[in-house]
Each structure stands twice: as C-alpha cells, then as structure tokens.
Write a protein that binds this DNA or RNA. Structure first.
Lengths: 205, 205
DNA sequence: AGAGAATACGAGCAATCGCTCGTATTGACA
DNA sequence: TGTCAATACGAGCGATTGCTCGTATTCTCT
C-alpha cells in the first residue's frame, strides 16, 4: 500500500518568505494577546494574508507556535554561542560569571518580547510544552554544567535542584525586567543579579 | 424614575449554602483546568447543579472568580492573623523571621491549590485582576513593613523594590513546593528559604 | 507556450462556551 | 392554607473560533 505520511511539500522561495512573515506576525500577536486569546484569523490578518493561506503553511495554531519555538531556540543558540570552557568558568569571579550568563539572556528576552509571553506560561497546550521543553532543558543543562565546575561539593540531585531554582528565579524576574522602562531596567537587572548572587555565594567553591 | 440598580436579592439559608458549594466546586475545577479552560457548565456540574442555577447566584464566570478571590482573602487573613509587632520583628533572628512568614504562607497555598492556579496567572481578565490585587498588595505591604524595621537604611523606593523582589521569588517558587511530593516538599521549602535569605542577608541591619 | 504544482483567497462549517429563558418546584411568612 | 419570592432545571441561543473547501492566480520547469 502507498505511504500515508504526507511528504513535506516542496516550497518555493515565496512560500518560505511567507512562513517567516507568519511567524513574525504570530510572535507579535502572541506577545500582545497571549497564546489562548490570539485567533488564527488575527495572525493571518497581521501577516497580511487570508486565513486559508495561513493553513497552507501550518497545519494548526499549535503548529505555528511550535515553529515559533523552533525559531526561538535557533536564535537563542546563535545569540549565545556555546557554553564557556570549564577552565574559564572555574577562573571567573562570581559576579563576572553571573554577568556573562545573565546579560545575553536578558538581551534576548528584551529583543523578543513574544518569547516569554509564550513559553513561560503555566497553561501551555501539550504541543507547545513539547516545543518549549528543549529551550528550558538547554538552559538548565548549561547552568548545571557551570555548577558542576564551581560547586563540586554538590551531589548530583542537589546540583539539579539548585540549577532548577536558579532558572526559576531568572524566569520569574525576567518579565519585570522586560516590562520596565529603559531607566528602570538597569536597576531591575541589578536586583535579579543580587538574588542569583545571594543564592550562589554559599554554594560557590 | 425608579432605581435601576439591582438591590441584592434576599437569600435563603439554602441559597447561601449553594453559593458556598459553587465556590468549592469552582476552586477545584479552576485548580485543575485553569481559569480560561474552565467552563461554567463544568463548574455547575461539579457543584451538582444545573447551569441555570449557577447563574441564579453569580452574574458571570468572572463574578464567580471574584467571589472566590474574596473568600481566599478572608481565609488568608484569618489564617495569619495580624502582622508581627515591630519589636518582635526587630528582635528576631533572620532565619526565624523567614520561617515565621514563609511557613504559614506555604501551608495556605498547600491547603488551597486553587489559589495560585488562579491568582498568579499572567492572563487574568480585568475583573479577576481587580480581585487579586488586594491579596498581592496586602502581602507586599507586610513585607515592606518588615523591611522598614529590619533595614532602616533603605530608601522608600529601594524598600518597595526589594519587597517586590521578595514577593516575586516567593510566588515563583510556590508552585513547585505545592506540586512536590510530601518527601520532596521539605527540601523545596528549604531552597525557597535559602533564596530569600541570600537576598535578605546583605540588606539586614 | 503549456502543464502541473504552489500560493492565495474568503465565505462559511462545525464545535464550543458563556449565558438566557420559560417553566417547575420549594420555602417563608401571613 | 394561600401567595409570592427564591431556588432549580436544562434545552438551546448568540457569538466566537479553529479550520476547510472550492476556486482563482502565480510560479517553475520543460
């Protein structure tokens, strides 16, 4: 019998452009309205196309969000590059280490307001959660790797738990940083770093 | 002309009981499904009544959530009583102070799983936000009052900002504590307190 | 140029949800 | 006991939303 699975449609350059435009529009509308409240027709309108055209490129609203998550993941990797070398991590001053990890992440969140609006919500549909998972665990793994170097006294479960706490703190305070006015923002970032530092200092070898 | 405003309907004891039952059901369903996904028919079914009956007591879904918020506020006040006397706050060891503030709050959140599921969400409808506001600002005011005693060196804006950070940390980590199994919970609370302590210690007079 | 695939359109379908309404039953008070 | 308000019911209305479908246009490749 013939294969049932839909082979990926052969796209023209125009189509690729359209998909990118749709994701741009989706990011903007998601950021402003939140995932649940945004209608697919609104995304299509924001992209300047008809609802039918949107569904030429994405199977569902969820598929749009998943593709957006993939794009965010790629952008994030490109923005930070690879993790630091263990030697660097061990040598760095704690404050400098925090700066080096936090600053690019903050910058990314400011540049992409749709990011947190979508992927830090407690009510993600299953498909979205699947897409957001890798983003989260990448960050978690990176923090855990740093902890392994800086705090070798920690047991593996302790290290995991501490990493989770650190990521949680970051995610909790980021929305405030992003929402802050330009003058306020610096102060908010300082607070965020103070919290991280206060938690890390006792662990730090 | 006759007054247009609906005078509050004269309730029978049975009606009061029903309203309470509806709020119980709403808390349970909200906790499990979240506010948006919860249908009013589901709340009615969980309360063992018909959709029509629910609307005999509440004008709208939002009105149910508001009433639930009011009930939570009252329960919270009853649970913690008044704030500590300034003398006590000043005399206490930092660790003990944290215990005395955090432990009852954690207990309340564990006893009322619907609470955070509703009032810590970023997508609250306007009416819900209005209802949740007092809860938030009561907590904030209390923390600020403690800071005023323990850290007199802080300027008023600094005090406000620090209080907000502390509340934010608490709210970010509470869901994990509530979701944790009984064995894990103690460890999660310890982490929460470590974070608070790490941030507070440098401020503490 | 001609053919077939990709892109584009937008009215409208099917399902969902908050809420209403007509009606029936129960309770309070004289 | 009689009267009226309070309580209770549940089918279904009106509006919304994710998505489809028939059709028209544009692009690619030969």
């Amino acid at each position: 019998m013939e294969s049932e699975e839909a082979r990926p449609r052969r796209r023209q350059a125009r189509g690729e452009r359209r998909m990118s435009e749709i994701l741009d529009a989706a990011a903007a509308v998601f950021a402003e309205q939140g995932y649940e409240k945004t209608t697919t027709n609104a995304v299509a309108a924001a992209a300047g196309i008809s609802p039918g055209s949107l569904y030429q490129f994405f199977r569902s609203k969820e598929a749009v969000a998943e593709a957006l998550a993939d794009r965010f993941t790629a952008q994030m990797r490109a923005a930070h590059g690879e993790a630091f070398a263990p030697a660097d991590v061990a040598a760095m001053d704690l404050d400098e280490l925090i700066d080096r990890v936090v600053d690019p992440l903050v910058a990314f969140n400011i540049a992409n307001p749709g990011f947190k609006a979508l992927f830090a919500r407690p009510d993600m549909p299953p498909g979205l959660a699947t897409a957001a998972g890798p983003i989260q665990s990448a960050l978690l793994g990176r923090v855990e790797a740093i902890l392994a170097v800086r705090s070798p006294g920690l047991s593996a479960p302790e290290r995991t738990r501490s990493a989770r706490v650190l990521v949680q703190i970051f995610q909790a305070m980021t929305p405030v940083v992003v929402a802050a006015s330009a003058e306020e923002r610096e102060a908010e970032v300082r607070e965020l770093k103070k919290v991280l530092r206060g938690y890390l200092a006792p662990l730090d070898g």
